[in-house]
């Protein structure tokens, strides 16, 4: 199938001072086929949210290319780029802070429809809002409710309805379930998957929860300090993780099965600063396989098997 969105060497640096740059996203190449889901995993501070926000234009990229439907979005004029905005949406992590507390559910869902002048009459607008509410499983009695009157799961449904309002093709899901309880989390995951099937949506699913990402994604990209360290089809990545960081990440998940005590090979240390990073593999300081080669030059992503790519000197 045809790819819907692609990035080439995408970079986003935040300037901290005259000499210091925070390398949030540092040369990411990815492509997502239409109707598929790319899962992006990594620990806090690895740049996964910045990547998502940069792709849909909430952050201005420092350099690189973002191809969407055959056009490089970063080269378009502001007005032409705006036309693409409605096709790319985002669902935010925290439904407690991403909704305006002073707007009712109706106002929240109608906002994108009003600002894009989709409907001519109020009647059409009301119909569209109730249609969206029904679609995301929100009872009509909530139409005049305010966010504080609803629980986290329903709030997240409002967030999803807002993202779906303009019939987008690509949705960045930025940790949409991590603020929710497990039973509610499962409801939202099912809803997102139903929507994808029904509307042929393409997702980029950002999360730190590996079991959720395995469930949702076709392909998974593992990020560490702004760079992609491994990319593979979901089942393959879990069956055969190659990069030492991916291995450590998988080993660290506590399994709800007794007897399988946690792997004692826990990686030491913590994620280092993404400010003016030294060349070479960024995981080197925590890696037990670290050799001089790792810190000499940047380690590029290499194809090991079909569609399985890894950035590590251990694999040639």
């Amino acid at each position: 199938m045809a790819e819907l969105i692609k990035t080439v060497d995408l970079k986003k640096y935040f300037k901290l001072s005259k000499t210091e740059y925070l390398h949030a996203v540092d040369g990411v190449n990815l492509s997502i086929e239409k109707g598929r889901t790319l899962g992006v995993v990594g620990e806090s501070g690895c740049g996964k949210s910045t990547l998502g926000r940069t792709m849909i234009g909430l952050n201005n990229a420092t350099s690189g290319e973002i191809w969407f439907e055959g056009e490089d979005l970063l080269k378009l004029s502001a007005s032409r780029r705006k036309a693409y905005r409605s096709k790319m949406q985002i669902i935010f992590q925290d439904p407690y802070s991403s909704l305006d507390p002073r707007m009712s559910v109706f106002q929240l869902i109608a906002e994108p429809l009003i600002s894009n002048k989709v409907h001519k009459s109020k009647g059409e607008l009301v119909d569209h809002v109730s249609y969206l509410m029904e679609k995301v499983g929100l009872d009509q009695r909530f139409i005049n409710a305010y966010p504080h009157e609803m629980d986290g799961g329903r709030r997240q449904r409002v967030g999803i309805a807002r993202a779906l309002a303009l019939n987008p093709e690509f949705i960045v899901c930025d940790e949409p379930v991590s603020a929710l309880d497990v039973s509610i989390q499962a409801q939202i995951i099912n809803l997102l998957m139903d929507m994808q099937e029904e509307m042929g949506l393409t997702y980029m699913f950002i999360t730190h929860d590996l079991s959720v990402v395995r469930h949702m994604s076709d392909e998974i990209m593992v990020m560490y300090l702004g760079q992609c360290v491994e990319k593979a089809p979901a089942a393959e990545l879990f069956r055969n993780p190659l990069h030492p960081y991916t291995k450590a990440l998988l080993a660290a998940i506590p399994q709800p099965v007794i007897g399988e005590k946690m792997n004692k090979e826990i990686i030491r240390g913590e994620v280092s600063d993404p400010i003016n990073p030294a060349p070479g593999c960024r995981f080197a300081s925590r890696c037990k396989h670290c050799c001089p080669q790792c810190t000499q030059a940047d380690v590029p992503l290499k194809k090991v098997e079909n569609a399985h790519e890894v950035a590590c000197v251990l694999y040639k």
Binding site: E43, H208, A251, A252, P254, M262, K264, I266, R268
Partner: peptide
């Protein structure tokens, strides 16, 4: 906490 840090703290 993140999973790798969680593993360290639980340990």
């Amino acid at each position: 906490l993140d999973v790798t840090i969680q593993a360290q703290v639980l340990n």
